[in-house]
């Protein structure tokens, strides 16, 4: 792939032409916040946190999906983008019952970290306080919908890496929920291989290992990276 040149936040950089803006930025130590994105699985552009401004376009572009182009001028942190990101994170906090202080992922949570990154000091929107269930029918893992942000990392990692497609999404709008099999309790989902990749991929405390208490659920993001690298480079074959 030919190398192209572009500027991100005024910095002139060169990148392979098949890279996304996000990849190019990361390689050049420019930090674009992300949430639904996870290295090793497909990008869906759902959280809208990584939106950037591209000169010449009046639409904001999801940097996780937009390919770099010759001469492209990208702005990743204008005042407008910062404000949008903060609003999106506040909307997420208002949407479900995220209570950091009693969460298994307290201190190891990407949503909590993102709130810090975007400078959220309080939530300006009305909290929704939906009634959400907790499913601990699985022998090792649990899902707490109070903490789910519908990033669908679990759906994608289960489908694309494990190949089981146990997870999917049901309902629409604010009624959307991640489900196992055809909305069966996780413990009875026969397609689940109990590999635990969904738990490691989950950015919050929504998916957790049972027995972990407050602040104990640390996610191992490197597991996924390790698996994908091993698979791509065929490290396990002869």
């Amino acid at each position: 792939m030919n190398s192209i040149t572009l500027t991100i936040d005024g910095k002139l950089i060169s990148a392979p032409g098949d890279q996304t803006i996000l990849e190019a930025a990361r390689e050049n130590d420019i930090h674009i916040p992300t949430l639904c994105n996870l290295e090793g699985i497909s990008a869906v552009g759902a959280c809208r946190v990584c939106l950037v401004e591209v000169s010449g376009s009046n639409r904001l572009a999801p940097s996780c999906l937009t390919k770099v182009a010759e001469g492209m001028q990208v702005q990743t942190a204008t005042d407008r983008l910062r404000e949008y990101r903060k609003m999106i994170v506040e909307l997420l906090f208002a949407e479900r019952n995220h209570i950091c202080s009693v969460c298994v992922a307290n201190g190891n949570c990407e949503l909590q970290d993102l709130a810090v990154t975007v400078g959220m000091d309080h939530v300006r929107y009305e909290y929704q306080y939906p009634s959400c269930s907790v499913d601990v029918t699985h022998k090792e893992f649990g899902v707490d919908h109070n903490r789910c942000i519908l990033c669908t990392r679990c759906v994608r990692v289960c489908d694309e890496v494990e190949g089981a497609h146990t997870w999917d999404v049901s309902g629409r709008g604010m009624q959307s929920r991640v489900i196992t099999d055809l909305n069966q309790p996780w413990g009875t989902a026969t397609s689940c291989t109990s590999c635990g990749k969904c738990v490691q991929a989950c950015p919050t405390g929504a998916l957790f290992r049972q027995g972990s208490t407050v602040a104990e659920m640390k996610k191992d993001r490197e597991l996924l990276d390790f698996l994908m690298t091993a698979r791509e480079k065929k490290q396990w074959i002869g």
């Binding site: 869906v44 809208r48 909307l91 997420l92 949407e95 629409r172 709008g173 959307s176």
Partner: peptide, 12 residues
């Protein structure tokens, strides 16, 4: 009611 729920700004 009709938002599909995929992206945050529309859903929430």
């Amino acid at each position: 009611d009709e938002s599909c729920g995929k992206c945050v700004p529309c859903r929430a």
